[in-house]
Nucleic acid binder design. Sequence first.
RNA 1: CGCGGGGUAGAGCAGUUCGGUAGCUCGUCGGGCUCAUAACCCGGAGGUCGUGAGGUUCAAAUCCCACCCCCGCAA
Length: 323
Amino acid sequence: MSEKLRILFMGTPDFACVTLRALCESNAGVVGVVTQPDKPKGRGYTLMPPPVKVYAEERGLPVYQPTTLKAGTEDGDAFALTLRELNPDLIVVVAYGKILPGYVLDYPRLGCVNVHGSLLPAYRGAAPMQRAIIDGCSETGITTMLMAAGLDTGDMLRKRVVPIGENDNFEDIHDRMAEVGAVLLLETVEGLVAGTITPEPQDDALATYAAKIEREDCALDFSRPAGEVHNRIRGLSPIPLSSAAMPGGKRVKILASLVADDRTPHEVPGEILSLDSTGEGRVEIACAVGSIYALRLLPEGKGRMSAADFIRGRRVAVGDIWG
RNA sequence: CGCGGGGUAGAGCAGUUCGGUAGCUCGUCGGGCUCAUAACCCGGAGGUCGUGAGGUUCAAAUCCCACCCCCGCAA
């Protein structure tokens, strides 16, 4: 990579961390890291630093955590000053979590490059990977782009396809995409510096949006075809996980599933059709069309367990109705 | 001091309300039946009931106190 390029990195979760690491290990000139402020997380609301901050500190990089970037605010103006001091040639943004105001977008000589988890212009927005899996796509990918004012509307720089297997879950795709994203970003920066990339505008007419995952997205609806139920389960696993209500009102989350049958119609969606406690076990749940096997579950208030253990604990009987 | 569930045999659980023989579904080991089996039958091993030489009691998994650890929700 180039000699003295000054790069400012902006990102927050593990996904971003992978790219930051690649950048650092390529000896690029990362002059600073901007990430979200520490937030109270988990039981007891312990203040937790974002993964990117943890890594940046290990690396000895200066870390900035403004609460807002908006001009006119205390933090925003302080950041504007910081930006001038750091004087980056390029800003790399990966899952940062805040909108970048115009003065930031316009600052770097080479622009702001974003790593996005979809093949743009499809799945613009917050949860492209989860939505692609939930929609049953057989492939998705990473796009690097030159950031513009709109939501993921910038000109595209590089793209790489990542296949989605029938039973891949969010974690599988997330990890694979994070690696691809890191590699693609490095290539993008290299090309940008060398001037060998021609930015390609997105066709807005083809744009689709991947809305943030909300609570309602996590409720399983067995009155859908088995394939759709399965896609939702894996698209939301292992975080935040989809769930169903059991008789008695308690909920179960389903971590992993398989499509058992995809054509037989069922009168009572959500009915438990069969239980098998041999091996890892499986719980067969009727969908409107077809059925699925739940393989790993998480009862409310308990830990994650195999279907076999779930059955041994007498938590379910054939004929129960989930929903 | 965000809300809540839990710690009992290798696993998942019941038993705690109202103290009184340590139980269930599996796994495991041995034997049997069978052409055969993840099926069935018989038998065995395996538990400091999270910790505290705590408290109450004739007696504590169960009631009281303190502490440790795990998990779900919410963010």
